[in-house]
Design a binder for these strands. Structure first.
Lengths: 204, 204
DNA sequence: TGATTTAACTTAACGGCGTTAAGTAATTTT
DNA sequence: AAAATTACTTAACGCCGTTAAGTTAAATCA
């Protein structure tokens, strides 16, 4: 069945071509400036061809983001190779999260900022379960557990603590990405300040 | 010049009619589901009439949001009437901010979540200066100053502290508004946790 | 080998959008 | 009475995501 295989590979190739073209356009121009028609033009196929490989625009964008966020999950765990200090692991993970968002603002936007109405209403079944975002969040939870077990942050509801930390990280990340009109103090100081403040707030 | 006045009043009336219709649609359906055409249909004028009273959709939406956020600035200062404890004022202001966002999710979205590309690129000159959002932020800064002067949070860069707090508040608000797919712990506990953690983190 | 099915892709179209240009009808001014 | 202004509309432009109905070439089957 060599022929069928070759066929399927060719199909995969075009799928990948679409994926890559969309990914590049998207990262470069942002969600608002990418249309199915532009993606099609870039790969020199008709717009409808895309629908043979991806259900719709939302699905395509989310798959692109999932790929990117798989890298976040990896990045966040890398810190464990550098230190065993649970507090340093937590701190490093938070920093990695924020910097990852700043490095991939358009991906961060689609997954964590945009989806107020955009995706929910029109029957798009995005489950945080099964998503790379969830895996990344679980890494955060693990870091929190590590800190609690080591006694470096005070005991309490792990979920509550993790979500509190996530809220802080997300707030800073999304503000820095989206609100260039605001006169923020130096980015690095702000990141430091948020991480430091929150972790200190969790110690006793 | 009674005639001209009457004319101008009539014009103001239609302007207000548009404003109110848009406001209601917007608060009810969210930004993604409001179009100029729908607003026009609601007031029973042609879509182009709106452009005689508002420059474009973005401007209209922002004016609606400004009106709403004027109320936030008021709400945030109300706490001062209830207590003189600077820490309570800060805490209360933070709580008011978050709850205001949850009460007006669509307005919060336009001003503080959406504008990644939406408004910046196409020559929309939104200055945070002159905005109600800025006034509300200044109230936060005042509360921080009050706490530092009373010695209840440790001395430091006021802007840095205020922006750190804002980031945390914004993060929680925007996550609670936009991410219904995530299994958050009880909302009230989460709000309490964030406020408590951040303020504790600022004390020494 | 010739007929038929299937796969891969395109053209045309639908119904939406924000916005602008040109037109109309009524009112006001001269 | 004529000219100018005001308040509005109709028609259109160029986008958008998406679907239905072809089309063409290759693969399968008789």
């Amino acid at each position: 069945m060599g022929i069928k295989e070759r066929r399927e590979k060719a199909k995969d190739n075009l799928r990948q071509e679409i994926f890559d073209a969309a990914s590049e356009l998207f990262a470069k121009e942002g969600i608002a400036n990418v249309s199915m028609r532009k993606i099609a033009e870039k790969i020199e196929y008709s717009p409808t061809t895309i629908y043979l490989y991806f259900k719709d625009k939302t699905t395509l964008l989310h798959q692109i983001c999932e790929e990117t966020f798989a890298k976040l999950a990896i990045e966040v765990t890398k810190i464990r190779e550098e230190t065993n200090d649970p507090l340093e692991i937590l701190r490093g993970g938070m920093k990695a999260y924020i910097e990852f968002g700043l490095k991939h603002p358009n991906h961060y936007e689609v997954v964590f900022i945009a989806p107020l109405d955009s995706y929910i209403d029109e029957g798009f079944e995005y489950s945080f379960d099964n998503s790379m975002g969830k895996i990344a969040f679980e890494k955060l939870v693990e870091s929190v557990v590590g800190c609690v077990e080591a006694g470096v942050i005070k005991n309490g509801d792990i979920e509550l603590i993790s979500q509190t930390l996530w809220a802080g990280m997300h707030g800073l990340t999304s503000l820095l990405i989206g609100h260039t009109e605001f006169p923020f103090v130096e980015k690095e100081r702000l990141i430091e300040s948020l991480i430091k403040t929150m972790i200190k707030g969790l110690q006793d």
